[in-house]
Design a protein around this nucleic acid. Structure first.
Lengths: 355, 355
DNA sequence: CTGAAAGCGCTTACAG
DNA sequence: CTGAAAGCGCTTACAG
């Protein structure tokens, strides 16, 4: 048996005794339809289980109801959070999320992006780091006149709206927390050199030290690259010094987990001998012992805000419409767990927030 | 300035001096086009940067070139792996992946699924656990006659093709590994009661014990639910017994991480005092100390296989075409790391595979 | 090997 | 408040 053909707008119009234009009006919630007519149409729609076909709407109307999400590292918890927020917000708004995994250094990156947008003509694109800072990607998108929102880009571009959190402030807060616990020998493991988040978090660290008049000890600053292995290696370096740090602020959770692993390997007690703080609140951060003190990025909310910016800014509103793109900064959250404690204490840490 | 309109098939046809049908033939790689004509068309396509519009192809041709991925727990590493494989394979095949995050127990689940498929008319859907076992989801999909592939479903349904790994065998292998390391008091923490993977892994555990004539000790069997907290709790139960187990097989990594955390909290050395094995090879498994011995599911490959099944089986090939759906079982991989070691040894474990 | 016509199922102007 | 017409940009089925 061949499957029954789904009802079309013509079927609905015939059954309801109106024109297809009126059906269209009802479905798109356009004003100017008599309420009785509306009711009648809606009833037929329900009876016939009519659902407008997206490809037809798209072809005729010029909107695809598709939002694209471009990402690089699929294992990154960051991307998972962003995707979750984006897909939920899309559903609420009647859009759908198309995802594409791209290598940041693929030679044909521009072509891959171009292919996607030319075929799908998404109404907007969401870019996550490091793709949101990739000139190839950005220029391919510009050429196709696809609106896009950058999530946590290196710099706020004048061309595109962006959504981010305040890395500097968050890093400062977490460093303040360590200071308030009595630590003064606080090491930092910096993130990847080419990512601006690394710089910003380092800035926050410096600011906190300065505010508390703690002199910067260059021996306590180690270059990392956001990987677990970098965290392990940095920890060995730091913990082999004569004057060990009593606390380590790793610029992300993966590195913090590396520090934790190295400390345990060396037989140090965490947080008794060493307090450790991370950044990101990845799923793994709560699945180790002791659970990590860290910063929760509002990934969900950033993604939702990105979708909203895209839906609100139709393609080619251009220079005329909104004079300049919006740059939103969303609030983060300090997550104090058991990997940080009062200096010298063997007990559990106090969840005191730094001033 | 209004953005320049993208070229259409008509522009290409005019420029190349052929009919649009011929352009269509070239682009769709249909046979029966003179090679010179083909070259000429291709040149114009390149010059004009022509890209067929997906919504038009979809409306006229009845194929959307969209594959849907339905998932429940976005933090699950499993979903990340599946998505990665699916999106890459889709790109290779000229398809795109649309993702949708669904609550397995949402009251309007059927409607949400119906909305997606009715609007997008994807050429196929990929379902991950537990959604692939959800009657609401399956019936909504059946009603819309959308082909779908189930990834690791509870049971192989006659209606749908599926892709899975061999949970029983993998669990047996990992138990064998522990036995080969000299362990006989091997505990198991079972997975969630309603998931069949739990049952299968337990079966594999039982089979390995039986093969080695090790009597089952009910005290070493603890019910879990796949969460970190369940692992912690189960570990406390197991490790407080007079006769402690010397090894624990947790039915997934999250629970294994819980066991590891609990052991460390109790001051036990892993693997010196306790060997721990997990299942899944989540990102966190390699980010703890000691790194977890576990089983890597071929998530990538399963997803690729799923996409292939979908592309190969056009909508409504129906009963006529392929008599019955295919059920594929893909090979897994034992990942032996440092959380397992020879009974009583304080040294690193040998990476010996069980017979 | 190539093409003219019809049609996919909607929305956009434009009328009334 | 409602509708008849044109058109979005392709593919299908049919001719030659």
């Amino acid at each position: 048996m061949p499957p029954p053909k789904p009802a079309t707008i013509i079927d609905v119009a015939r059954e309801a005794g109106v024109s297809i234009k009126t059906v269209s009006r009802v479905l798109n919630q356009e004003p100017g339809v008599h309420s009785e007519t509306r009711e009648a149409v809606l009833k037929v729609v329900a009876d016939l289980k009519y659902r407008p076909k997206q490809s037809a709407r798209s072809l005729a109307g010029g909107r695809s109801f598709l939002i694209g999400l471009l990402y690089y590292d699929p294992s990154a918890a960051f991307v998972g959070g962003v995707q979750q927020g984006a897909t939920l917000r899309c559903r609420e708004a009647g859009y759908h999320l198309v995802v594409e995994s791209l290598h940041n250094d693929a030679p044909d990156l521009a072509m891959q992006v171009d292919r996607m947008v030319s075929a799908l003509r998404p109404d907007g694109m969401i870019l996550t780091p490091p793709l949101c800072d990739n000139p190839q990607v950005l220029s391919a998108l510009r050429e196709s006149h696809t609106p896009c929102v950058l999530i946590s880009p290196a710099a706020d571009e004048p061309d595109h709206p962006s959504v981010r959190m305040d890395d500097v402030h968050a890093a400062e807060e977490i460093t303040n927390l360590l200071i308030s616990l009595g630590h003064t020998r606080i090491a930092i493991i910096k993130g990847a050199k080419d990512q601006v988040a690394s710089k910003r978090r380092y800035q926050g660290y410096l600011a906190a030290l300065k505010a508390h008049k703690i002199a910067l000890d260059k021996d306590l600053v180690v270059q990392g690259d956001f990987t677990f292995d970098a965290g392990v290696e940095a920890a060995y370096q730091l913990l082999s010094r004569r004057q060990r740090p009593t606390a380590v602020f790793a610029s992300n959770d993966d590195m913090a987990l590396g520090v934790l692993a190295a400390a345990q390997r060396l037989g140090l007690s965490v947080p008794g001998d060493l307090s450790i703080a991370g950044f990101d609140d990845t799923p793994a951060a709560a699945r180790v012992w002791p659970p990590l003190t860290t910063v929760r990025q509002p990934m969900d909310d950033m993604a939702r805000a990105a979708v909203d910016l895209l839906i609100g800014a139709p393609r080619d509103a251009g220079a005329a419409a909104s004079a300049r793109p919006k740059h939103r900064v969303l609030p983060h959250e300090l997550v104090v767990r058991d990997s940080t404690a009062v200096l010298g204490a063997k007990a559990a840490p106090r969840a005191k927030k730094a001033g």
